[in-house]
Structures are given as C-alpha cells and as structure tokens.
C-alpha cells in the first residue's frame, strides 16, 4: 500500500524545550489518522513539519514520497490543508476567495464546489473578515477539498466551533472522504469526533510518540475492569491505568487486555466478581493522558 505521509525521527526544539522528539509515523493511502495529544504536546508543530511549513531540527518527513521541505506545486495539488490559525485573504469575499483559489488547481471540481457550498452553507457575498469563525473554517474546508485532494491535513479544525457547526463539518468530511477514499491526517481535542472519522490513532505527549495503531486495535486492547468482593491488592503494572480501590471494590483500565488477561485475573481473584466492559476512545485518551501526566509531570 502506498504511504502518503512518512516521518522518521522527527525532532524540533524551541529554545531549550523539545517540542517534538524522535517522532516516527506513517499514513497509508486511504486511511484516516487522528493525531491526539494534550495541549502543547507538539501536534501542531508536527503537522507543520509534515506539511513543510516549518523546518525540523532533525529527522525527515515526506508527503507522497517527496521531502516535505521541498514540496512541489504538484504535491500541493494533491494535498488539502486546514489549520485553526490558517490565514485567509480576509479582504476578499467568499466568492472572490473561491474564484482566486480555484485557479491554482487544475483539478478544481466546480460541481463538487457547488455541492460543498450547499452542504456547508457558506456566505459568498460577505467579506471574509466579517464571517464568523465557523464560517471561516467551513470556507477553509471548501478551499481544501474542492480540488479533490488525495490527502487532507486538518490541524484542529473543530476548535472553537459550536456543536452544530462541528457536527455539520464532521458529517461533510466523513461523507466525502468515505466516498472518495481520501487519506486524512487530523489533530483534534475532541476525541468523540475521532471515533466517527478515524481508522488509526496516533497519540503524542511531550513531543514523544506514545500510541500509534488502528482505532479498532486500540479499542480492543483497552478494557475497564471492576473487581467486587474480597480480593488481594492488585500489583501495579504498566498495563494497569487509573487504579482506584474503595473497600472491596477495585476499578482500573487495562491497556493490554486479551483472553489471557481475564483468565489470569479470575485465577488470582477467585472470590471477587470481575466485570469487564469496553470503553470509549475518550476514556482511553483520558486514562492515557493521566498516566502520562503522572509519569511526566509538567513544570
């Protein structure tokens, strides 16, 4: 399978701090990858390096096999990029901006543009500077999608959007990407959105890669376990996250759950009732984030 995004040992330092450290990841064609992390984890820096907008201090990254630092116009003709702080020409109206941008792409799809306009409800005759944040994001999304890119990079596009706009936005992206088999690499704080959109999940903390696997695999290996009734105190291992104990009740999230795990628990705690339940990605992310925080407390 073709690799769309490839990063190897990517590193970036801001003054004395490692914003990104030895980060390696890849995105195969046709996959949607959610890029998660706490505030300041290094998501935006990583995305900017991937898109060649800033220069890495170490390592390398490529889009479509082309070094990100030397992306050619033809590489950008296949890549749509939306960032929360991306500037639009705000002295233009929406219509003018679309007309201007469409000339940059030979593959600009006019009917698709109209379809997106209908779906997103973008005001065309208003100057961009007078548009709301939601309208600007929708416009940016249209400008990144109407030429039918093979790769869509979205850097926290949902930030600051009200739930209704976010829902519309997400639905549009979902519908279109699934129809067209695009690759998507997106970062977000809203983990609920990831479950709808992502095939793979990458989680970083303090600029270091913590998790990189498919969403299914991630959800399969994380389970919430409740032990009720008399039982021996649990031995804390790397796989046990967020352990809480109240009298005869222990609760934790197991990050490497499989059938053997359950058998071992039952063997060790035969008098206790063991309840195993699946958890949402949001809960997984929170458990991981808390764990990272405990292991790497920020100054």
């Amino acid at each position: 399978m073709e690799t769309i995004i490839e990063a190897r040992n990517l590193g970036k330092r801001y003054r004395q701090k490692d914003a990104v450290h030895a980060l390696s990841l890849s995105l195969p064609a046709g996959r949607a990858c959610a890029f998660l992390g706490r505030n300041g984890a290094g998501k935006t820096t990583t995305i900017k390096m991937l898109a060649g907008l800033i220069r890495p201090d170490s390592g390398s990254c490529s889009l479509f096999g082309q070094d990100s630092q030397h992306l050619r116009p033809e590489d950008w003709q296949k890549t749509g990029y939306v960032s929360e702080n991306q500037e639009l020409y705000d002295w233009m109206t929406g219509e003018q901006l679309i007309a201007f941008t469409s000339k940059l792409y030979p593959s600009w799809d006019k009917p698709f543009e109209k379809e997106l306009l209908e779906k997103l409800g973008i005001p065309l005759r208003r100057r961009v500077s007078f548009c709301s944040r939601g309208e600007k994001v929708k416009l940016a999304l249209l400008l990144a999608m109407a030429f039918r890119p093979r790769l869509l990079i979205l850097d926290e596009p949902f930030a600051g959007l009200d739930p209704l706009v976010r829902s519309e936005f997400l639905d549009t992206v979902l519908e279109i990407t699934h129809q067209n088999d695009w690759s998507i690499f997106f970062s977000t704080h809203d983990v609920d959105d990831v479950e709808k959109l992502a095939d793979d999940v990458v989680i970083i903390d303090e600029g270091r890669l913590q998790v990189s696997e498919s969403l299914d695999s991630l959800q399969n290996r994380f389970r919430r376990i409740d032990l009720q009734g008399p039982h021996e105190p649990l031995m804390k291992t790397a796989a046990i996250l967020g352990l809480e104990r109240h009298a005869d009740h222990s609760r934790f999230i197991h990050s490497a759950f499989n059938s053997e795990t359950l058998a071992t628990l039952e063997a060790n705690h035969s008098e206790a009732h063991i309840d195993v339940s699946t958890i949402s990605l949001k809960e997984i992310f929170i458990a991981l984030a808390k764990n990272f925080q405990t292991e790497n407390p920020r100054s």
Binding site: K48, A51, L53, I54, R72, P73, E74, D75, W76, Q77, T79, Y81, S83, N85, Q86, E87, L88, Y89, T101, L104, Y105
Partner: peptide, 21 residues
C-alpha cells in the same frame, strides 16, 4: 508580507505555487 514565506500561517504557503513563481 501578504504571503511571506517565513509566515507558516500564510494562505499561499499550503497552496500549489512555487517559490520562484
């Protein structure tokens, strides 16, 4: 300044337009 290459948020930075152009 409108599309300065040093500004990573500039609109044109993520568009198909070569540096020489």
């Amino acid at each position: 300044q409108l599309d300065a290459p040093r500004r990573d948020t500039a609109f044109l930075r993520s568009r198909p337009f070569s540096s020489s152009d």
